[in-house]
Write a protein that binds this DNA or RNA. Structure first.
Lengths: 335, 335
DNA sequence: CCTGGTTTCTACAACGTTGTAAGCAACGTT
DNA sequence: AACGTTGCTTACAACGTTGTAGAAACCAGG
């Protein structure tokens, strides 16, 4: 039931190579020959063996996308866009889930990389630039945020600017005791560091003193962590009139905790997030957030990768930035 | 920078096959030979070429998981479990997103299937049993619900029973005007049909008349569809005191619409969903739902697939069922 | 020192595909 | 009639790996 070029060739009465030429759309094939071959292909339901083709060509047509966790909505939404953008170039996307640990990420970066895929789009959490130096030649594009400039192409957004703008939005609503949720002390927390920098910059712009007690850490950025951090803030006795959460899932957790504490959003506490995941458009209340252009990020990443795969692999790393938009909703504006 | 068995062999002063034997853990290799080879492997940073290995072995070590959409939380959570279960067997999972259309699903079932993967775990929306007959031998396991028994192994849950139980839960709370959201008229809507059957069965159990006007269709099962269906129900003048939504995202949309209409949940209207996605554990209010054992589903699917790949491909299709649990939360019980 | 069995290693062929180079017609030009 | 040109087709080798079969080295027991 599984046929090879040879079977098609015998059936059509031509050489193996002619069948290969038909399959690959080579122009110099007589119309009647082509027709005979195509008929044979259809009759046998022939499909090329990709392993053999890859072996011969040195290309697989598969790129990998490595993300920390698939069931974090931001990454799931990003994955969809990457798959779509890659499909337009005829690529298949192999999605890999690293778990976000440094060791696992190192394995993905060095191991998966070899021979099965043509390139890698990698959204690391814990990996540092030095983990990546010295990896052999598989083209790689990094997503997300980094403080230091590493050895690979990179697509990100201006985290500091975005965090600053959404904090300024809270200030503009007259809030003065603005908390932040999601800070991280670990060296890996690049996003956290940048968003915190934007937050403090906005406070400084408004002449508000930075208050350490209003900044709550969150080791991971899941809903549960946001809820826990919010509860901790409330329990500590600080009375914020607004919270900037470093991503939307944290914010949804914070909404939940505020609800449990009997506080009204946004009347008592305004809440803002970051990422614009779909949940935030239907939550109660809907969530004000920074909406990065995920489609653009995905497209830029795929295009950068295409450039590396087909083109110059030794060119200096490129740093691209995708746009974002402040998207105020009920959790700051009310209904 | 990219080395082959041959390079390692030359460096270690042995034959290519001996290196291959070392790489594959063949026992009859003298310890000092093995050491020399391993040293050479390390020095050259050799990695096997998977395409060549696959070509030779006829196996790729990759299975595909095809789901309608990655950013539907249920599928994202399922994907995580499948990746985890497959990793334990040393498999890589290629995740494919079909979009849920019948034609696209047919392409995935027949096309992706060939030569790049050893097997396929497929969660179809629109595909019917007859679309699948006559596909050549790539082992396949189907997830989700089907009315008719097709030509492949299948893992599902007892939709009718689960829907009946959660509807009975609403009845048990004293609700009598229980609406349903998510019905579908299309032949593809197998889940919808089964869950509707469970709903009507529970009503019959309780001696409540079935009211067509309380059943709202939803072509897709996203949050927006749930919100729209809920608004339509309210606008039609029926005054339900409970709603059973056929999945959690519909329910979250319905919560949103009820909130906008100024109705309290669960005091005015109790809301129940199906799937137990993480969002429902943090929504306001938290969502009562049916929690299918997703980890079990994933594990069963991977094991069934392993059986097909390694074992008898002609055995009759197997039908497995995973357990589920009624999980009442605030949206029916209150706080 | 031979015998027979085991261990260790190797040469060769094959997996299915495509690039290269070359062959063979058929054509138009000198 | 001889020549190059173009269009179409093919034989062969190679991609990097592993299974098969068998050769060489080793060992124990007589």
């Amino acid at each position: 039931m599984r046929h090879r070029l040879k079977d098609v060739a015998e059936r059509a009465g031509v050489s193996v190579k002619t069948v290969s030429n038909v399959v690959n759309g080579y122009v110099h094939v007589r119309p009647d020959t082509r027709a005979r071959v195509e008929e044979a292909i259809a009759e046998l339901n022939y499909r090329p063996n990709l392993s053999a083709r890859n072996l011969r060509k040195g290309r697989t047509g598969v790129i990998a996308l490595a993300v920390p966790e698939l069931d974090i909505p931001y990454f799931a939404e990003l994955a969809r866009h990457v798959v779509t953008a890659a499909a337009e170039l005829g690529w298949t996307v192999l999605i890999d889930q690293t778990g976000g640990g440094r060791e696992q990420e190192r394995v993905v970066a060095s191991g998966i990389t070899e021979h099965l895929i043509d390139g890698l789009i990698f959204s690391p959490l814990a990996l540092t630039a030095e983990d990546l130096t010295g990896l052999d030649g598989t083209p790689m594009v990094l997503l997300g945020e980094r403080v230091d400039h590493g050895p690979a192409d990179h697509v990100g957004i201006d985290n500091v600017g975005a965090a600053r703008e959404i904090t300024a939005h809270l200030v503009g609503l007259g809030r003065r005791r603005i908390a932040a949720i999601g800070s991280q002390r670990t060296p890996e927390g690049a996003s956290a560091r940048l968003r915190l920098a934007g937050y403090t910059a906005a406070l400084a712009d408004a002449g508000i003193d930075y208050d350490e007690g209003l900044v709550a850490p969150a080791s991971a950025w899941h809903r549960a962590d946001g809820a826990a951090a919010m509860r901790a803030l409330l329990a500590s006795g600080v009375r914020p009139d607004a919270v900037f959460c470093f991503n939307d899932t944290l914010a949804l957790g914070a909404l939940r905790a505020l609800h449990e504490a009997g506080l009204r959003v946004p009347e008592d506490v305004a809440v803002a997030g970051f990422d614009d995941i779909e949940d935030g458009r239907f939550s109660v209340p809907t969530l004000s957030t920074i909406a990065p252009d995920k489609e653009r990020i995905a497209r830029l990443a795929v295009e950068l990768l295409a450039g590396r795969i087909d083109g110059d692999r030794t060119a200096p790393p490129r740093e691209l930035s995708a746009p974002w938009r402040l998207t105020p909703r009920e959790s700051t504006l009310g209904r």
